[in-house]
Design a protein around this nucleic acid. Sequence first.
DNA 1: GCAGTTGTGCTTTTT
DNA 2: GCACAACTGC
Length: 741
Amino acid sequence: MTDFLRDLNDVQRSAVTATEGPVMVLAGAGSGKTRVITYRIAHLIRNNGVTPYNILALTFTNKAAGEMRHRIDKLLQSGSASGLWIGTFHSVFARLLRSYIHLIGYDRNFSIFDSDDSKSLIRQSMNELGITNDSLPVNAVQSIISKAKNSFILPSEFQSRPGDYNQQKAAKVYELYTRKLRENNALDFDDLLIKPLELFRAHEAVLGELQETFRYILIDEYQDTNRAQYLAAKMLGAKHRNIFVVGDDAQSIYSWRGADISNILNFQDDYQDSLTFKLVENYRSTGTILQAANSVIRNNHRQIKKELISNRSAGEPVTLIEAYNERQEGEKVAEHIRSMRQKDGHDYSGFAVFYRTNAQSRVLEDVMRQNRIPYRIFGSVSFYKRKEIKDAVAYLRFIVNERDNESLLRIINFPPRKIGDVSIAKLKEYAVLQDSSLYDAIRNAAEGGFQQRLVNALESFSSVIEKLKELSEYGSVYDVLSELYSLTAIPAQLQAENTAESLARYDNLQELLSMARDFSDHNPDSSSLGDFLENISLASDYDETRESDNYVSLMTVHASKGLEFPVVFITGMEERLFPLNTYEQDELEEERRLFYVAMTRAQEKIFLSWARSRYQYGQPQQCLRSMFVTEIDASIVRTESGELISGRSSSERASSSGTATSRGFQSKAPSPQSGIQTPRQESKSASKGFRAGAMVHHALFGPGMILEVHGSGSGQKVKIRFRTAGDKTLMVQYANLRIVS
DNA sequence: GCAGTTGTGCTTTTT
DNA sequence: GCACAACTGC
């Protein structure tokens, strides 16, 4: 037994050493969750002699995985953790699929489609089925399909389920989309989770082999797992049953992408013989911050009760900043940062500014720049989503997987080769006729009876591809990419254009090139083009943090999970922004958890800010202060001038903290000053409750909010913003709307 | 075939 | 107030 276990408190140590059988750790924010996972892995390897190769640790982000690996290496002598399976569900499963996917009819060189690729394929499918975007928006279909996949409902089953008209149409799209993915030899993000399940179901021997390999399974952020992830963990752990999950139901903020909070709430029922440990001692935040966080989360009903206990002093109260508009909000944030930096000697890196939606970042960014405060925005436009990067990556992807038509269509006429839509349509026809892939059709174009000009253009394209393909057989990723740059002259073109924008793009391409070089250097044994692409596909901008630099961090609340900062600003504390438009109690509770996550990032000091007016869609909107502000114990909230917050009567507090039935803030709607509650107040028609701002329910489109009311009587129309179906204008007499509030 | 323009629809959050 | 899809005119 090694003495590193002395670094742990009693509960942590018990959780670390309970190595056999199912274990759940409920780890409150800042309670040493990562420490427990990393020490447990180190303990298994060092003290129990478990081979790293037999341990599987699954995380939610690449960053978390990287950090854990780093910490484990530090606990053990570096190198002795090699062979350990640690990574995100997506990356570990992608790796498994490379070995086994041929068993379920895919080629191991499959492409990984990002959500844009997948959207484009869904759009194609809808076109072929004659479903217009107007009748059913692509985005809605994409989200329906993704939800189905995350719940491990396959197309056949989805089709046979009863559902409304839209669901039926979506089911058809789902079926065709799945076929198209297969044609492209491609997987979307969700497939990375469900293809393993299909594989396990069809090939028990493979499952058995993997069950034998993964003697110990650890899952981080268990509250964010979806049904597919839950099933995968259950299947893989069924033999040895050493399944160890860590999470915090109060920090579950991803239900919108299929995370199922029941997974953690029901763990004890699933594994009746499991042990549970609760970590509630918080090492991060002051007593006041935890008091604030506890007092807010207490308003949620669906939760496992636990209150964080600080082992630090009370600290400073929460400061509430009220601004005239979002510009002034930013100015005030900047001013506080400047003065605190002088007074308390914080580095810029000690400050973080959070917002609920990305759209809010622009103004904050402007203000930071004007005030000469160094800042960094996390996760705005991803590097990998930039056009020039996507183009270059599409070439690489196509070289690896020549069935990847998404990539092919992206590059066939870029740079311009005079191959337009008409030619492509002809080619597609020819491919169908020949029953060949699109690329085979291109290679056989000479026999296709096309115009000589087109044949020449196609040949010049395929010769580039063939050259690169050959090079990729023996050359490094770097070699392939630089040859690509010279053959297509894409960077040269950008350089020649010589505008600020084109030069920035040129720089991005150079950056990609140096990433390729780094990749080959750091992964000498697995540095194939395919590996590089997999890395890129599953990477996000949130992964990199340059600790050493001194800047203020700007990010969404979601992106802040897992991080900590001495001083935290939570901006946009307004109704309908934070909490964002919510229609149901569950959604409001998720917003509240999100706010809880934001607050518990702070070590010393929290500022909350809100603006009385804010631009939305280029239009100024009146705003109301968020109900969440009122939920914090009033005794620990001060205004900027140091007064207790005022202007809230106790009755108002009572009504805004909400009951299960009144859905919280909406009960305040009729108050005369509540400007934003009725976006178009001028609408005169208040009859039958069809007024702007009212919540309604439509049999097909689900819940929505009335934006505008036109006319009255039998000709009355209402414009409604639906949660999933978008904005629609409907005739009241046919729409059969149910008024919810 | 292509560039430039108009139109639309949207903004939650990401592997 | 933006990004991107669809359209138009050369």
